[in-house]
Design a protein around this nucleic acid. Sequence first.
DNA 1: CTGCGACCTGAAGCTCACTTCAACTCAAGG
DNA 2: CCTTGAGTTGAAGTGAGCTTCAGGTCGCAG
Lengths: 153, 153
Amino acid sequence: MHESLTIGQLSARSGVAPSALRYYERLGLIRAERTGGNQRRYARTELRRVAFVRISQQVGVSLEEIREALDSLPSSRTPTPDDWAALSRAWRDRLDEKIRLLGKLRDDLDGCIGCGCLSLQRCTLYNPEDALAAEGPGARLMLARPGADAASD
Amino acid sequence: MHESLTIGQLSARSGVAPSALRYYERLGLIRAERTGGNQRRYARTELRRVAFVRISQQVGVSLEEIREALDSLPSSRTPTPDDWAALSRAWRDRLDEKIRLLGKLRDDLDGCIGCGCLSLQRCTLYNPEDALAAEGPGARLMLARPGADAASD
DNA sequence: CTGCGACCTGAAGCTCACTTCAACTCAAGG
DNA sequence: CCTTGAGTTGAAGTGAGCTTCAGGTCGCAG
């Protein structure tokens, strides 16, 4: 039907606000051609990119990481289903790992809080290396954990 | 040994920066007594609260929600292991739900991206109601999804 | 009682992921 | 040709979750 989509159309079809789409473009997550009058026109394949971005976000991946992942797609040609499949396999591993960690967290929570030992002992619950999902935003420079020993209470 | 902990000690034992502990106090997540000279002294049980906060954050819960959960603990007496167990049961449900959604996401990703249909159709992958983890920060006022229909490409 | 590190406060700064605004231009219908 | 809605930009604002800073105080060892 239409060769390309306006930003409004892409927004409506993806459910992502135009302002967010422009933001994504600045970050290099999606691309757009321009009309003579400087308006964005999106190839329909961009829809897939937007979908990938949003889905990945739901899994807790930052836009920067998503950008890196998308950079692995061939830029010279339109990505094939196989290209996307490779990408999503990598993402699948991420998901598996995240699920594994959440399951561990749940089991530990049962065993730990239940028994009253909830105090960051060897509880694994509190292992920063496990760096699960949901690393909030904000300045995160003071990461060094100096003496962090465990309490008995 | 010590009846109470200084902020430095609590920080060392919990691995949470003093500035963050003060921030948590402002939000009503933890409490502290004060010395004559206005310095904070923490009961050892606060360690458990801090642990609960950090663990919950890892699961993707906002500090505001964590505060609400902690408010359900008895304030008149020191929470018993049973009190904590009740709290963690509720959290466990959260975890179960989150795990379920991630699993769904993973399966959908396999079926969807793999087959090339990744374009927010009935893919469930793209269902905002599923509101998984990691709802990033930031203004989120433009949530209305007007016409959001699906594309065939 | 003097020094020094740990602590105090409030205000400002920072990152992420956006949104909002103002002032302007484009594009298509009547 | 004119209007009207959709699009453009850069700059500034928002909210979460902190950190950093300046300027001052506490508390303990010597």
